[in-house]
């Protein structure tokens, strides 16, 4: 076993170095295109200009304000969406009747492009935070729901029988069998949901907002401050990566028992 572990370790660190090198090369190419491409800064700002705009946005506090608003919308939306999807998903997994009753709505909710109804939601619920949280929650809802249903349905019957033969209570079956057994698939859904939630918040802010990173992008575009657009985009990427990383960390922490090879 030892050599196998060592080998996988060295290959992953090797890949990390390759990734960093490729990233550096990308930034260099961007710099070269901006420097020698003859494009004006409002079309393609150089990495250095973007960095300076970033520092300015950071020091005047505008970046914190807008990123904070967006992060807040994302977190609340993610929480509400994931929580309701988990509860509903569990109930759907347990009851075929409920599944039949809800399935037209679930399928329809997935078929409706959220971008298209986002304006409607903003009309109904105003340009404030609530409509963004709602869009976030809606976009997170489906992948978490589907994965919860799949995860709970995949709980092995044999283990269920084992629990019953030991006279386990429904509560014990939920806590000691269904939750741990469904966790891998559930966390997979949450990982997708976490990245989608960022998209949800930005969609909402595009439609109508006076705060948030999506709003900042709109402002930057309107003022030909393209460097600011870049700053906002990179901040969004960072937010998405952090959220993704948190879920990935949870997976590492809770799923150590899985064979990772």
């Amino acid at each position: 076993m030892e050599p196998k572990h060592l080998r996988s370790l060295t290959t992953t660190t090797g890949r990390n170095w390759l990734g960093l090198a490729s990233l550096a090369a990308g930034i260099l190419a961007w710099w070269a295109a901006a420097r020698f491409g003859g494009l004006p800064a409002f079309i393609l700002p150089s990495p250095i200009q973007v960095w300076m705009r970033f520092v300015r946005a950071l020091t005047d506090g505008s970046l914190f304000l807008h990123a904070g608003v967006t992060l807040f919308e994302i977190l609340i939306g993610l929480l509400v969406g994931a929580l309701s999807a988990t509860v509903l998903g569990y109930l759907v997994a347990k009851s075929r009747t409920l599944e039949r009753v809800l399935s037209p709505y679930l399928v329809a909710s997935q078929a409706v492009p959220l971008v298209a109804i986002a304006p409607l939601l903003v009309i109904w619920f105003g340009p404030g935070m609530f409509s963004k949280v709602l869009i976030c929650a809606l976009i997170v809802f489906f992948p978490v729901l589907v994965n919860t249903v799949v995860g709970v349905r995949a709980v092995p019957t044999a283990l269920h029988n084992l629990m019953l033969s030991l006279r386990a209570t429904p509560r014990q079956i939920l806590l000691k069998l269904e939750i741990p057994a469904a966790l891998p698939v559930f966390l997979g859904g949450l990982r997708i949901g976490a990245t989608l939630s960022v998209i949800g918040a930005v969609i909402g802010e595009f439609v109508g907002a006076d705060k948030g990173l999506g709003f900042l992008i709109n402002v930057g575009r309107g003022q030909f401050d393209t460097a600011l657009v870049f700053v906002a985009v990179f901040t969004l990427i960072a937010l998405a990566l952090v959220l993704y990383g948190i879920v990935a960390l949870a997976e590492r922490r809770f799923l150590v028992w899985q064979d990772t090879n």
């Binding site: 283990l159 033969s165 028992w257």
Partner: peptide, 11 residues
């Protein structure tokens, strides 16, 4: 009860 498979909880 012991089943044909060990039925251990992998987690």
């Amino acid at each position: 009860m012991v089943f044909q498979e060990a039925n251990l909880m992998p987690w």
